[in-house]
């Protein structure tokens, strides 16, 4: 049951893009076409789940016992950068086809603050899924990461659909490009606010 609550909460209620503002750069950058948006979300989901798992273990089995929590940011970003590189190399070897479709997005993910943000959030913040407030365990953290990534994917794919339409509609000169995209995102965020209170 807790997992279901986490899923609904992270996908709809506290969507990382539209309520936390994490990952806005790819949101604006690679959302011109639905295809690329889907590719990006798949890559983010994969890396986010993996990264959260590794950084969670790092936090509780290395940083906390050694009392070097102040190295959190440094070590997390290093692990993330290394992980992305590794995924890229492995993907190239194992499945060149998948690499073809996801490869170009992978380097972008290192500087996607959604991934680092989620990894940091699960070890810093108390959550209240299922009543009591507590720190998330490993299983819950990974589910939370996957759910956040799905929320990211949902928002970016919907947004790409709208932007494809915007391309062919007539927009005042000053609004063209990023401004109209931001205003569209604002209206989407309003729509997502309708979910608040669900969990």
């Amino acid at each position: 049951m807790t997992y279901v609550i986490i899923l609904i909460s992270a996908i709809f209620v506290n969507n990382i893009l539209l309520s936390q503002f994490w990952g806005i750069c790819p949101f604006l950058g690679v959302s011109k076409q639905v295809n690329t948006a889907v590719g990006m979300s798949a890559a983010v989901t994969f890396v986010m789940a993996l990264a959260t798992c590794v950084t969670w273990l790092l936090q509780y089995y290395v940083l906390v016992p050694l009392k070097i929590k102040y190295l959190q940011t440094v070590s997390f970003i290093l692990v993330l950068a290394g992980l992305v590189q590794m995924v890229e190399i492995i993907l190239k070897k194992i499945s060149p086809q998948l690499y073809q479709s996801l490869g170009i997005f992978l380097p972008l993910i290192t500087t996607n603050c959604a991934v680092l943000g989620v990894a940091l959030m699960v070890v810093q913040k108390q959550f209240t899924f299922g009543g009591e407030s507590h720190m998330l365990g490993l299983g819950e953290s990974v589910v939370f990461a996957v759910a956040s990534a799905i929320g990211f994917g949902l928002a970016i794919t919907l947004f790409a659909g709208i932007r494809e339409q915007l391309e062919i509609s007539e927009v005042p000169k000053s609004f063209r490009g990023i401004p109209i995209a931001l205003i569209t995102a604002g209206i989407m965020a309003m729509a997502f606010m309708g979910f608040s209170g669900m969990v």
Partner: peptide, 9 residues
């Protein structure tokens, strides 16, 4: 949240 997008836009 929506206000952030709208104001920046």
């Amino acid at each position: 949240a929506p206000g952030a997008f709208l104001v920046l836009g």
